[in-house]
């Protein structure tokens, strides 16, 4: 069953149309990858889903509800979490305060404590640094914090925007392992990545975006064998 359906979505920045009518689906339990070059509209798509940008036309349906014009903050308690591009942790708050912000919409204190424990288990480094200001963490640690913060809301669907951007190869592998784990524990993942190779290695299905349009789609396996994709995105 599709947990997220995007239908003929169009998004504009002023007079420039960034997204020119795209449609795709994310089924429950899947990892879906949106790949494409810089400026293809990947981030714009995610930001429109979570209400940071307004849609000009089209529909976004989540769990049977039309969320196209819904204010973004309401989506968190509906089960959507978004790990934004550039991580955007609260630099002047501690690691723990950042994680607590992630649970802002949750009122079940005891359960939030439980979630915090599982997040510390998944990211031991965050526990070690829980009283440190988030701005002083390394890029990889900030990415972990951004993911941990998103997980604090206990999401059904997690949108991740370029989680590997600017990270050293060791961290990239670690981050992708964590995404797999998050997925295994029952969270559906919509992943935006420039690192197509890595993204396809963990995704079920992928869509290729080019200048605001979906130009290719298929299972991750098919995409990896596709000559066009190989040439343009897998640098072979």
């Amino acid at each position: 069953m599709a947990i997220l359906e995007v239908k003929d979505l169009e998004v504009c920045y002023g007079v420039i149309q960034a997204i020119k009518g795209i449609s795709f689906e994310v089924n429950e339990g899947e990892i879906i990858a949106l790949i494409g070059a810089n400026g293809a509209g990947k981030t714009t798509t995610l930001q429109t889903i979570t209400g940071l940008l307004p849609a000009k036309a089209g529909q976004i349906i989540y769990d049977g509800t039309d969320i196209t014009r819904m204010p973004g903050y309401k989506l968190v308690s509906m089960g959507i979490a978004h790990v934004p591009e550039g991580r955007r942790v609260f630099a002047e708050m501690t690691v723990l305060q950042n994680l607590q912000m992630g649970a802002y919409t949750r009122k079940d204190k005891a359960e939030v404590e439980e979630t915090l424990k599982t997040i510390y288990q998944r990211f031991p480094r965050l526990e070690e640094r829980k009283n440190q200001l988030a701005g002083t963490l390394s890029g990889g640690e900030q990415q972990m914090l951004a993911m941990g913060r998103a997980l604090m809301s206990h999401p059904k669907l997690m949108l991740m925007d370029e989680p590997s951007m600017g990270l050293s190869p060791i961290y990239v592998n670690e981050i992708f392992d964590i995404i797999k784990e998050i997925h295994r524990s029952g969270t559906t993942v919509l992943l935006v990545e420039q690192n197509a190779k890595k993204a396809l290695s963990i995704a079920d299905k992928a869509y290729v975006l080019e200048t605001g349009k979906i130009v290719l789609s298929g299972s991750a396996g098919e995409m990896m064998d596709n000559e066009q994709v190989k040439k343009a995105y897998l640098s072979e």
């Binding site: 204010p71 968190v76 308690s77 002047e92 607590q100």
Partner: peptide, 24 residues
């Protein structure tokens, strides 16, 4: 909670909204 929301909004309005904070 409102005070924490204020701190979050003052740091990054977009990220605050992604936490479920009603910025308006």
């Amino acid at each position: 909670r409102m005070g924490q929301a204020m701190l979050a909004v003052s740091e990054d309005r977009g990220a605050a909204s992604l936490m479920g904070i009603d910025v308006n």
